[in-house]
C-alpha cells in the first residue's frame, strides 16, 4: 500500500515534469515559421494546404490543444513537412520503423555487457588487491574513460576494414533477425558494450567488496558454509540490491540509443532520424523525438528508484 502510493506519487511528478518540458518545447517550436519541403508527387502548396487544414497556422494555445487531442484520440503525432521520404506522411509510422535497429543493438549490447561486466566485477572483488583485481581495475578505468567513439573507430578500422570480419555498414532492409543482419550489427554492439562492461564491473566490485566485509558473511562462514556458498547465497544477493536497479535503469535509458554509434555504422535508428529532423527542420518529427528522449530519461530514473523498493523491502523509498 505504501509502495503503491509512492509509485503513484513518482509517476504523477514525472508526468508533471514531462508536460512542462514538452509544452515549453512545443511553444518554442511553434514560434518558428514552418519550413516546407517538396517530395515525390507532393508540392509545397499541397503540404501548406494540408497544414492549414490541420490548423498549423492557428494561435499556439489552440494548436497545443489540437496536438494533444489528436495524439490522445487518434494517435496522430503530425505529418512530415521536410523529412525526405516522409513528406506528407504520418510521422508515427516513420518513428516506429526506426525503433527496431536502435533497440536491438542496445539489447544485444546489454546481453553481452551485463554478464561480462558482473563477472569481471565479482572476480575483482573476490581477488581484491591481487593481480587479477589490479588488471581488471586498470582496464575498467581505461575503458570507462575512453569514449565509445574511439572504440567505434578502432573496431571499424581494424575488424571491419583491415580484417574484413564484419561489413562496414549495417545491412539495409527490415529482416532484423537474419544472420547477415546480426553480423552487421555486431561492430556497433561491441563499440557500445565496452563502456557498459566497465561500468558494471566497477559498480559490482565496489558493492561486493563492501558486502563481503559484512558481519553476516562471517556468520555464514561460521555456520559451516564454504566460501563459494557464502558468496553466492549471501554476498551476491545483497550486492545485487543496488546493482539490479542500475541494470534496469541502464536498460531503459539505452532505448534512446547512441547517436554517435548510429552515425558511425550507418544504423537506420532513432538517433539518425533525430539528427535528420534537425538538419531539415521537420518540427513534428522533432517534437515526437524530443518527447521520446525526455520520456525515456525520466522513466529510467523512476524505474531505478522504484525497483530499489521492490527488490529490497527494507528500503522504503521517499520515507521520512
Amino acid at each position: 500500500m505504501y509502495m503503491l502510493k509512492y509509485i503513484l506519487k513518482r509517476i504523477g511528478l514525472m508526468l508533471m515534469t514531462f508536460s512542462i518540458i514538452i509544452v515549453t518545447c512545443f511553444v518554442l517550436i511553434k514560434l518558428l515559421p514552418i519550413p516546407l519541403g517538396e517530395g515525390l508527387g507532393v508540392d509545397k502548396q499541397l503540404i501548406e494546404m494540408k497544414l492549414r487544414e490541420r490548423g498549423y497556422y492557428d494561435p499556439i494555445p489552440v494548436q497545443l490543444w489540437n496536438y494533444v487531442v489528436r495524439i490522445v484520440t487518434e494517435g496522430d503525432f503530425g505529418i512530415g513537412t521536410t523529412m525526405p521520404g516522409y513528406i506528407n506522411q504520418p510521422i508515427w509510422d516513420g518513428f516506429v520503423s526506426r525503433l527496431p535497429p536502435t533497440i536491438l543493438i542496445n539489447v544485444y549490447s546489454s546481453l553481452i555487457g551485463v554478464p561480462i561486466g558482473l563477472g569481471l566485477g565479482i572476480l575483482a572483488a573476490l581477488k581484491k588487491n591481487k593481480w587479477q583485481d589490479q588488471v581488471i581495475s586498470t582496464g575498467v578505468i581505461v575503458m570507462i574513460s575512453i569514449p565509445s567513439i574511439v572504440f567505434a573507430f578502432l573496431i571499424q578500422y581494424v575488424l571491419c576494414f583491415k580484417l574484413g570480419w564484419f561489413p562496414l555498414r549495417m545491412e539495409s532492409g527490415t529482416d532484423y533477425f537474419s544472420w547477415e543482419m546480426f553480423k552487421s550489427m555486431l561492430p556497433a554492439v561491441f563499440s557500445l558494450c565496452f563502456g557498459s562492461i566497465a561500468g558494471y564491473a566497477r559498480y559490482t566490485r565496489a558493492e561486493l567488496t563492501e558486502v563481503l566485509t559484512g558481519e553476516f558473511m562471517l556468520l555464514a562462514r561460521t555456520k559451516g558454509l564454504t566460501r563459494g556458498q557464502a558468496t553466492i547465497r549471501h554476498a551476491l544477493r545483497n550486492a545485487m540490491v543496488p546493482i539490479f536497479p542500475m541494470i534496469l535503469g541502464e536498460f531503459v535509458s539505452v532505448l534512446s540509443g547512441s547517436m554517435i554509434i548510429e552515425n558511425i555504422f550507418d544504423i537506420p535508428g532513432v538517433g539518425g532520424l533525430y539528427l535528420k529532423s534537425i538538419t531539415v527542420l521537420d518540427y513534428d518529427f522533432f517534437m515526437l523525438l524530443s518527447g521520446f528522449y525526455t520520456l525515456v530519461g525520466l522513466a529510467a530514473g523512476i524505474i531505478i528508484d522504484i525497483s530499489y523498493g521492490i527488490i529490497d523491502p527494507r528500503i522504503r523509498m521517499g520515507a521520512k
Partner: peptide, 25 residues
C-alpha cells in the same frame, strides 16, 4: 576510415582518449 586512410581519425581520437583518461585519473 572506411576508405582505409586511418590517420585523419586517429590523431583526434588518440587526443580525445588521452585527454579523457588523464582527466579521469
Amino acid at each position: 576510415l572506411r576508405l582505409g586512410i586511418p590517420h585523419v581519425a586517429m590523431f583526434p581520437a588518440v587526443f580525445l582518449a588521452l585527454l579523457l583518461l588523464s582527466f579521469n585519473l
